[in-house]
Design a binder for these strands. Structure first.
Lengths: 237, 237
DNA sequence: TCAGGGTTCATGGTATGCCATATGGCCCGC
DNA sequence: GCGGGCCATATGGCATACCATGAACCCTGA
């Protein structure tokens, strides 16, 4: 199955001249395909074919690829085109470390900046997450889990922090998704989340920072131990 | 003076088909122009003119602009083209906060990871920085200052961390340059640097983190107090 | 003289065509 | 029979041409 077969049945064209520039719209579409795992890591992205599939020319598509390249979602090698980025375990761990550091720092800022309402919303999301666990709905659990982390960062009101957190999260989305799906450490994850929210409410900055920095890596190291069961890269020529 | 007048006397063309792809080379050139303040914040970047000045077509130039846009060095508005990014004071502070957070975290990692040689090299650079101060050579001081911070991050061996640190630093380069040129707090900056290196050698993680997180913001708040004397944006029609 | 509208020009956006190169298959020679 | 080199083809890279849109300027009428 080629990269294009996966995307063939997407919107045939996107000629809607809405506000956002076309390259960014194209980038968003490809991003989506990557996140949904329809474009799998290591899979080559063929310009002509994908451009035709999306109903755009090669020019905006190439610009979209440049965007995704800087974002770290695709690897652009000089004369060999673009392949969906397949972070090595080492790189995954580095990204998770950075993610943890950013969230930890955001936590300390959020201790001062978070509003009552936002705090309540986080608690509410936490309960929804618990509900999803009860139902064994791993996808919903994952979504709420992400929402909580995102919520903490957004509570800082630091737009730059939010943007970079989002970007790094994108690069890890697939990994984290797989991890969250396979890992059985729900109980400890829940405990950590509760500790995070408590520390946030109490304004205990060192504590929330420590927990958040460790929390993200925990699931990864769990996976490493399991033997990183993951779909192999390099799908096909 | 237009954006192109500034760049007119650059290399007439860059047809050297070296390894790095042309859009990245073009991006590097524009980056350089921005960092050297020849392309000033708020200044529009005209595709055709700049492309001709650089001896390339519009296509790779546009791709370069997309790269720089994701990096945050230029702002790309839908039908109005690209302008050199002019971070607001708020955004500058947010970026500095994030930079401090990354360096602080890197410091804690470096406590464990740094080698003897790297440590000695940092000390050496520190002394070179002191020498530059003695001579009143602000530019050299600035370079060595940056080198020390970069060195700490690089000592972690975390490639992702290094890359993001570099990127954020680029977005702030001009600002930090101006700040370092105007500020008179050399003494306290030196003291902080010495404290950083001591903490690093002693492996005092909480201390190095605290210092680094504050250190970067200090100069900025100094500038804020001075009344952010900076070249005004929006240079020409 | 000033204001409004229309026209024109320049600029960014997109599509397409040509070129160089990398890859895969095939043929020839050992 | 197997291996290496050559050729064909497809792919990415760049340049260019065309199109649509935004802005500035001028002309005209009040």
């Amino acid at each position: 199955m080629t990269a294009t077969d996966d995307i063939q049945d997407a919107e045939p064209d996107i000629d809607d001249p809405g506000d956002p520039p076309m390259p960014e719209r194209v980038a968003a579409l490809i991003r989506e395909q990557i996140l949904e795992d329809r474009l799998k890591p290591g899979m080559p992205v063929r310009e002509r074919i994908l451009a035709k599939a999306l109903g755009v020319s090669r020019t905006p598509l190439r610009e979209a690829l440049k965007i995704l390249s800087v974002e770290g979602l695709v690897d652009l090698t000089p004369r060999r085109g673009a392949v969906v980025a397949a972070p090595s375990p080492k790189e995954q761990r580095e990204l998770l470390q950075l993610l943890g550091a950013i969230e930890g720092f955001a936590g300390t800022l959020a201790c001062d900046a978070i509003t009552e309402d936002a705090m309540k919303e986080l608690r509410a999301t936490h309960y929804e997450m618990l509900a999803a666990i009860m139902r064994g709905d791993r996808l919903t659990y994952f979504r709420h889990n992400q929402a909580i982390h995102r919520g903490i960062v957004e509570a800082t009101g630091n737009g730059v922090l939010i943007a970079y957190h989002r970007q790094i999260n994108l690069r890890l989305y697939r990994v984290r998704y797989v991890v969250n799906l396979r890992t059985e450490r729900w109980e400890s994850a829940i405990a950590e989340h509760e500790a995070i929210l408590d520390a946030l409410q109490a304004g205990d900055k060192p504590r929330i920072r420590t927990i958040l920095e460790m929390h993200v890596l925990a699931a990864f190291d769990q996976m490493e131990r399991d033997g990183k069961g993951d779909a192999p890269p390099t799908a096909r020529p």
